[in-house]
């Protein structure tokens, strides 16, 4: 599961819908793996306004990754004059699209429900009394 995905996933329980603590879900006992992916500058540029930078910082920190800049980069700084991806873009690509939580769990800050992650897939099935 990519850090990109963790920037959007929320707790699935109805009772957590309106609780701000239900987002983001917090990774625990996470096994990280970097899986190479082809860089897609336009996609990252399109996604950037939707990325919650504070959340990205928090999750990176919780995963023990190097700390991120205070504020989100500007997509104007994504390409060199020669049209090559800049280091800024490459770093963001690595962080969002290549860093994966392969195993571990995600914990809701509101209800403390734990969603298990196995082989990169999170289990969001809820027993019906919790739906």
């Amino acid at each position: 599961m990519k850090l990109l995905t963790l920037n959007f996933l929320t707790c699935a329980r109805k009772t957590c819908k309106t609780n701000p603590a239900a987002f983001p879900l917090h990774p625990r006992e996470a096994e990280l793996e970097q899986i190479e992916a082809e860089i897609n500058p336009l996609l990252i540029q399109n996604l950037l306004p939707r990325i919650n930078w504070e959340v990205l910082k928090t999750i990176s920190q919780e995963l023990g990754l190097p700390s991120l800049p205070e504020s989100a980069p500007d997509s104007e700084d994504f390409m060199t004059e020669e049209g090559e991806p800049t280091q800024t873009l490459k770093d963001l690509h690595t962080l969002l699209m290549e860093m994966n939580v392969q195993n571990g769990k995600l914990v809701c800050g509101s209800c403390e429900h734990e969603y298990a992650i196995k082989e990169g897939i999170a289990n969001f099935l809820l027993p019906s009394h919790m739906v």
């Binding site: 599961m1 990519k2 995905t5 699935a12 897939i121 999170a122 969001f124 099935l125 809820l126 739906v131």
Partner: peptide
């Protein structure tokens, strides 16, 4: 990325 999830339980 994929979730093991029941769409009838919502979209998380």
């Amino acid at each position: 990325d994929m979730l093991l999830a029941d769409m009838g339980q919502g979209v998380p």
